[in-house]
């Protein structure tokens, strides 16, 4: 593994190895505390995403390494028009691995072609965000003990939600995964994903507008945000928003071992009253994000 640009850069065995490593880090944190001593991670965030950046920085610090970088393009020379390629060529001189977030789609791929150190895509516009998907896979694996034979409900904005799209492509490689796609008509999963991934691989899926109706079947419920700007008018937004808010009430028919996930930040799509329910695992998911990034950094550094 040289870079991580797209989740599909990793085959199932490589993903399994990262999950295994992350679990080992969780079990034996002491063994990893010094492993990245004298190594540096550069976080190049051409657009702000505090949560993701902190997760990367915490990961490197917990491995005993150091971090440097910037968190908005205005503070770096790209504001003066420097290319992504030039930036990472220079930063390659200062760091051993680079995590990069950029508003333009494909920027991390361009970076990986120019850099002499490994590049991690920390989000490129609405395109890819592979470490989020790795986080989701580690979470499912830890909560469920497996990544196959699961009924996975994806709820909310399935049209624009990139985390949903890459989670579907990642999970489609495991046997017996069934998807339940829960969204308003306006925010359904795009046809090309249904055709290229689900139908191409002969995977079972169900589309519905009703969360209540399918709740009892689900092993995983992956919630996403329904954003106001996706709607033409306020009435539609308000009407639909409320039907996709998860409340303790809606969870009464769910399985006792359901796992409720969310990539965070949450706005109001999960009621805070759900947080205390042991089935809510979105904060554990955020913690897993740090561990899988630790495993990834080690893999890319060959440690």
């Amino acid at each position: 593994m040289r870079n991580l640009i797209d989740i599909l850069d990793l085959d199932v065995r490589e993903i399994d190895a990262l999950i295994k490593r992350a679990n080992d880090i969780i079990e034996r944190p002491d063994a990893y505390r010094e492993i990245c001593r004298y190594k540096k991670l550069a976080t190049l965030f051409f657009e702000p995403s505090t949560r993701t950046r902190l997760s990367f920085e915490a990961a490197m610090l917990e491995l005993g390494g150091q971090v440097l970088g910037f968190s908005e393009a205005a503070s770096y020379s790209s504001a003066k028009g420097e290319s992504v390629s030039d930036t990472v060529r220079v930063v390659s001189c200062y760091a051993d691995v680079i995590a990069m977030r950029h508003p333009k789609e494909g920027a991390p791929l361009v970076a990986s072609m120019a850099a002499s150190v490994p590049i991690i895509n920390a989000g490129d516009g609405g395109h890819n965000h592979p470490t989020q998907t790795l986080t989701d896979l580690l979470t499912i694996s830890r909560e469920k003990g497996r990544l196959d034979h699961l009924t996975v409900g994806l709820c909310g904005d399935l049209k624009f939600g990139r985390t949903v799209h890459s989670l579907i492509s990642a999970l489609s490689r495991y046997e017996g995964v069934r998807f339940v796609l829960i969204s308003p008509e306006e925010l359904r999963l795009p046809d090309y994903i249904k055709q290229d991934i689900l139908e191409e691989k002969g995977l079972k899926y169900l589309e519905t507008e009703s969360l209540e109706q399918v709740m009892p079947e689900l092993d995983i419920l992956y919630m996403t945000r329904v954003q106001r700007e996706r709607f033409f008018n306020e009435e539609d937004y308000l009407r639909l928003r409320d039907s996709y808010i998860l409340t303790p009430d809606k969870l009464t028919t769910a399985k006792s071992d359901l796992s409720v996930m969310h990539p965070l930040p949450r706005v109001n799509e999960i009621s805070t009253a759900v947080d205390a329910d042991p089935r809510a695992c979105y904060f554990r998911q955020a913690l897993n994000g740090k561990y899988i990034r630790m495993a990834l950094i080690l893999a890319l550094l060959g440690l």
Partner: peptide, 13 residues
Amino acid sequence: KNPRCITTTEQEL
């Protein structure tokens, strides 16, 4: 043709 693509800004890509 994607206006959000890196090809729109990166020099001589």
